[in-house]
Every structure is written in structure tokens, then in C-alpha cells.
């Protein structure tokens, strides 16, 4: 038992890093998801193509490969063109995770927007709203409740993916656990504890997403 308590401190240090990383990458992912999702539906061919390429690329390659590339390969590219592109592990992790989850999120955004009935666009046109007003005031508010369940799943996936940054020496929960294991050889306790810590965080994250989902769906009341 004494061992258990002594593990908690370093794991909590790691948990803090995990939380930060999850938060930053989810926010980045959200922004990217909307940009690419809406971009894929754009009338502008270039925007559409850019969005499609981005989505296919980041969904089609392994996250760990992307992470490693950003952390190990990009600096070398920078050297070749004379720019210092080295970045701290937290930044590399945030960018890799954010872009990756953003690509998956983009498909969710696109699907939800396309699920908004055509007649909403017609009503907006009849009232003479501009396309931009139509998207931001009429379509997106109706699309967002559709996105929330999938966003919930993606948020959990993102949390799980943060464990990979331990492989580029970022001091998250998994990294700390590995350190502890190297030191104490007490694999069972440490990894069981680690698994439950992730599980706990996932449950909390799930609950938060459920609350957000309910908030965004306020207007979807049942007919009297």
C-alpha cells in the first residue's frame, strides 16, 4: 500500500501534462475540424481540394508516424532550408494530435452540416441572408447538436492518443509510469494504477461532453 501512495505523486505530475496536452490538442483539433469540414463544402475549388487533401492525408497515415515526423524529421527539413524547426515535445504533440483529430473531426462537421435540410437554406435565401450569414446563423447552430456525440468519441480517442507523446520523451502519465517501472520493477501495481487513471479521466471527459451535448441541443424539445 505504501508503494501505491508513493506512485501517485509522480503519476499526478504526469496527469497534469496529459490534461494540458488533451486540452490544447482538442481545441486545436476543433478549430481545424471546422475549417476543413466547412472548407470541404466550399464552392471554391482550391479550398475544397486543400481540405480534401488535408483530411485524406491525416486520416490516412499513422498518428505515431505523424508525431515522429514532426519531432524528428521536420527539424532536418528546416536545416535544409535554413530555418530552425525544432520544437519542444509538448508543441509537437499538440500539433500532431490536433491535426490528426481535426482531420477526423472534419468529416463529422461535414456530415452534420450536410444533414441540415435543404429547406433551411431555401428559407434563408428567401429572407435574403448572405451565404455567410446562412452558414453561421442558420446552418451551423443546427449542425452542432448532430456533431456532439461523435465529438465525444473523438475527445476520448484524443485522450488515449496523448499516451504516444511519452515516446518523444514528454513527461505525461505514461512516461512517468515507465520511469517508475524502470526504477521499481513493480509493473502490475503501476500499470494497473495507470490504466485506472486513464479510465477515470475518460469517464470525466465523457460526462463533460454529454453536458455540452445537452446544452447545444436545448432547442430540440419534444413536441407537445
Amino acid at each position: 500500500m505504501d508503494n501505491l501512495l508513493s506512485y501517485i505523486d509522480p503519476l499526478l505530475d504526469g496527469a497534469w501534462v496529459t490534461l494540458q496536452l488533451t486540452l490544447y490538442s482538442t481545441v486545436l483539433g476543433g478549430v481545424v475540424a471546422f475549417m476543413a469540414g466547412i472548407g470541404k463544402l466550399s464552392e471554391n475549388r482550391a479550398t475544397r481540394w486543400l481540405s480534401i487533401c488535408f483530411i485524406e492525408f491525416f486520416r490516412g497515415t499513422s498518428l505515431l508516424v505523424q508525431l515522429f515526423w514532426l519531432y524528428f524529421a521536420l527539424p532536418i527539413l528546416g536545416q535544409a532550408i535554413g530555418v530552425d524547426l525544432r520544437m519542444p515535445p509538448l508543441l509537437a504533440g499538440t500539433i500532431a494530435l490536433g491535426l490528426n483529430i481535426g482531420a477526423y473531426g472534419a468529416e463529422v462537421v461535414r456530415g452534420a452540416i450536410q444533414a441540415v435540410p435543404d429547406n433551411q437554406y431555401e428559407a434563408a435565401k428567401a429572407l435574403d441572408f448572405t451565404p455567410k450569414q446562412t452558414m453561421w446563423r442558420i446552418v451551423l447552430p443546427q449542425a452542432i447538436p448532430e456533431m456532439m456525440p461523435s465529438f465525444g468519441n473523438l475527445a476520448i480517442q484524443n485522450l488515449k492518443d496523448t499516451a504516444l507523446v511519452s515516446l518523444i520523451s514528454l513527461g505525461d502519465m505514461t512516461f512517468r509510469a515507465e520511469q517508475l517501472r524502470n526504477y521499481t520493477q513493480d509493473s502490475t501495481t503501476i500499470y494497473t494504477l495507470l490504466l485506472f487513471m486513464y479510465f477515470g479521466m475518460a469517464l470525466v471527459l465523457s460526462a463533460i461532453m454529454k453536458i455540452l451535448e445537452r446544452y447545444a441541443s436545448r432547442w430540440r424539445t419534444r413536441k407537445i
Partner: peptide, 13 residues
Amino acid sequence: FIRDTPLLVQLFF
């Protein structure tokens, strides 16, 4: 439990 915990950690375990 499996769905909410990372593959990497399960692998280490």
C-alpha cells in the same frame, strides 16, 4: 474499460 484506455498502456501492461 478497454475502449477508454490507451493501446500503448495496454501493450505495456
